[in-house]
């Protein structure tokens, strides 16, 4: 049982890496509209580093080991602002999953969201990746209370609504903040890449056939 949670998590990271690679140019184009067009590149570099670090991980690694390894690899690979943000998110997820053999989705999402929010001193409504991660984490908690079977449906929907909501927002963080009103109407690239990761999570963990 123990390795199943970690294996899935590793598969999730590799799916996310593939999804981000496939959307690399698209993410950079979105970023170019409001900032410096490096988001696709940065995310792709980071997730490639994560997957290659995870490939070296021993079979006995726990889910929190997986997140810790991912955090270190991501941070060393990219820097930028995404580096510290995701590194802090993954590290915090590792803390939330400490001592667990299986992955608790709500704890994982809550860990990522609050880790990112703390590092970036951000909140929702600021046209960032948090507009995906915070609603996703809340949806997971709501689903845990109301309808655990549909957890990933809740999360997917909340994440996708969150990403879409960034269109009407004005960026107040990062480089996009400098373009002021010209950021309005553009979806936030960080929110889009966050959505890709949430999608990979939902694909990996929402698959009932593989349920633990």
């Amino acid at each position: 049982m123990q390795d199943l949670g970690s294996k899935r998590l590793i598969r999730m990271f590799s799916q996310a890496a593939m999804a981000i690679d496939a959307q690399r140019d698209h993410l950079s184009d979105l970023d170019g509209a409001i900032a410096d067009a490096d988001h696709g590149m940065t995310m792709s570099l980071g997730f490639r580093a994560v997957t290659s670090a995870l490939a070296k991980l021993g079979a006995e690694a726990s889910p929190s080991d997986v997140f810790r390894t991912a955090a270190g690899a991501f941070l060393d690979a990219v820097g930028a602002s995404t580096g510290p943000l995701y590194a802090s998110g993954f590290l915090n997820a590792a803390k939330h999953l400490d001592g667990l053999d299986a992955v608790d989705p709500a704890a994982m999402l809550e860990g990522i969201a609050s880790g990112i929010a703390a590092r970036g001193k951000g909140s929702r409504g600021e046209k960032t990746m948090l507009d995906v991660w915070l609603p996703a984490a809340e949806a997971a908690q709501q689903a845990t209370r109301e309808n655990p079977a549909e957890l990933w449906t809740y999360v997917r929907q909340a994440a996708s609504d969150g990403a879409e909501s960034t269109r009407t927002m004005i960026a107040v963080r990062g480089r996009a903040a400098r373009v002021g009103e010209r950021s309005i109407g553009h979806i936030d690239p960080g929110a889009v890449s966050a959505l890709l990761i949430v999608g990979a999570m939902a694909d990996t963990f929402g698959d009932a056939d593989l349920a633990i």
């Binding site: 410096d36 067009a37 490096d38 590149m41 940065t42 570099l45 941070l75 060393d76 690979a77 990219v78 820097g79 930028a80 602002s81 580096g83 510290p84």
Partner: peptide
Amino acid sequence: VGNVFSSPPPD
């Protein structure tokens, strides 16, 4: 030195 237009990591 970081990547193109990207901050270097802490290390």
